[in-house]
Amino acid sequence: MGIRLSTIDRRKFERLAEIMEMNNEVVGLLSTYLTDCPNFVTEELIHNFCEECGVPEEEAFRHLLIVACGLNIENNVRDRQLAVNYLMPAVRKLDPQEYRTNPYYMHLRIPQVRFGDWELKYEKYIPYEAFVCNEIVLDEDFKEIPQIGFFDTEFSFPAVMQNNNEWMAIKPNEVETMQ
């Protein structure tokens, strides 16, 4: 059974299919980055980039992330679209104090203990380490914009681990979704 679409509806469908493909591609790029090299961007790289280009840290981080994801924004139109439409709006420099003063984070204290395979401990993000910081944002064109954050200072958070695998942690993403 064939579905007949008007020319306008066919174009809309093709555009949605292209957006879905780009949504998946960006998730793949960021998943690889966050899994394989979330610490690629360092304080030294950021400061050098900011000094040489005269841009704020957030802007420097965005450009370094684009490079780390292997996108060639100067010579590849698709890569430029992914960078401009997804990665640039995805990245935010976060204020660690905003999370440290959150009542959920502030009042939860755990001892650092181990029992069997389980451990209660404090993990940390190092300065400029990338992490998921909130839910995906869906824009009016159905682009799914991941939310990637970083701090310019170390940020510690309580975590429950089993065999060195995280079961639960009070990270910015959890604080945001609790709100």
Rank of each mutant, 00 (worst) to 15 (best):
K124F: 15
E129R: 14
V113K: 06
T101A: 06
L138I: 11
N165L: 13
L138G: 00
V91N: 05
M106L: 14
L120Y: 08
L87H: 03
N48Q: 09
A159V: 15
P38G: 07
I126Y: 10
E144R: 08
A60E: 04
K124Y: 15
F142D: 06
N76R: 01
E57C: 08
Q97A: 13
D141A: 11
L71P: 01
Y99L: 02
G149T: 11
V113L: 12
L65H: 04
V55W: 05
E59P: 05
H63V: 02
I145E: 03
E58C: 14
P103V: 11
Y125I: 07
P96F: 12
F115Y: 12
L120R: 03
N163V: 09
V67L: 06
I110R: 04
I66R: 03
K124E: 13
N165G: 00
I148S: 07
L82V: 02
V84I: 12
R80T: 01
P111V: 02
S156T: 14
R80Y: 00
C50P: 03
R62L: 06
L87K: 04
E44N: 09
I46K: 05
D117T: 07
L65K: 04
A159H: 09
I148R: 07
H107Y: 15
D152A: 12
F151C: 06
N163K: 15
E58K: 14
C69L: 12
F115A: 08
E140C: 08
D95R: 09
V113T: 09
E57S: 13
C133P: 07
E129P: 09
V160H: 06
V84E: 13
N39Y: 09
D117I: 08
V84S: 05
L71T: 03
V160W: 14
V113D: 03
V113I: 15
I110S: 07
F40R: 09
E98G: 00
L108C: 12
N165M: 13
V55F: 05
D141G: 00
N163M: 11
L64R: 03
F142M: 05
T42P: 08
V55Q: 04
N85M: 08
K143Y: 02
G70D: 05
E144F: 01
V67F: 04
F157G: 04
E144H: 04
D79L: 00
P111S: 03
L82Y: 03
T101M: 12
R114T: 15
I46S: 02
V67R: 06
V84P: 01
F49G: 00
A159W: 12
E154H: 06
L71N: 02
N39T: 14
F40M: 06
E123N: 13
C69W: 05
E123A: 11
E52Q: 10
N102A: 09
E74Y: 00
